[in-house]
Design a protein around this nucleic acid. Structure first.
Length: 172
DNA sequence: CAGAAGATCGGG
DNA sequence: CCGATCTTCTGC
């Protein structure tokens, strides 16, 4: 199976967020078991201008990884409880990422973090050659719907209204 | 150094 | 609708 490489993730987050729909997220656990699930919901966070983007105010210890070349993982703890999974995209020096909000069978970014047993150690993981998490190039036929991103009203106009949330509605 | 708020979820 | 639970950033 073809694994998505860093070249793939070096493009624009808004494009990649859509393109990732139908691709398969794979997590291999320490005990050897494997969880595979197609991505069905994503959100894009793009650049300094996007006030909903954690990195819009520049580099901090937390956002540092978003300035890397695309293809590494950005995880962070939200509300002291949930680890959210993002894939950094774009070129080095430009902060952007795609949040994985849903995969088949698991709805919600917090639940994904729980089911995938994510933690701090995944921060900066290279998705191209990691032995425990990667994405495979699969295709699912369906329709893509767009909507505003969740939980970022504080970002204000026009960012809170950007249609940067993408969902795949499979045919069949 | 204190305080507030957060890309969420589950329970009542 | 609220509490959980803790990291991160801001402001004094």
């Amino acid at each position: 199976m073809n694994r998505l490489d860093r070249e793939y993730f070096s493009k624009n987050a808004v494009q990649i967020a859509q393109d990732l729909l139908g691709k398969t997220l794979v997590r291999k656990f320490d005990d050897g078991s494997v969880l595979r699930a197609p991505i069905v919901e994503t959100e894009a966070y793009f650049g300094f201008e996007d006030r909903a983007n954690h990195a819009s105010k520049g580099r901090t210890p937390r956002t540092e990884i978003m300035f890397a070349r695309g293809g590494v993982i950005y995880v962070y703890l939200i509300y002291g409880i949930h680890w959210l999974l993002n894939i950094v995209t774009g070129s080095e020096g430009h902060p952007e990422a795609v949040l994985i909000r849903g995969v088949y069978g698991i709805s919600g970014p917090g639940r994904i973090g729980k089911r995938l047993k994510l933690d701090r150690s995944f921060y900066g993981e290279n998705i191209e050659n990691s032995h425990r998490i990667w994405i495979e190039d699969t295709v699912i036929n369906g329709k893509i719907s767009t909507s505003p991103r969740i939980g970022i009203a504080y970002a204000g106009t026009p960012w809170k209204d950007k249609l940067w949330r993408f969902e795949l509605k499979p045919i069949n």
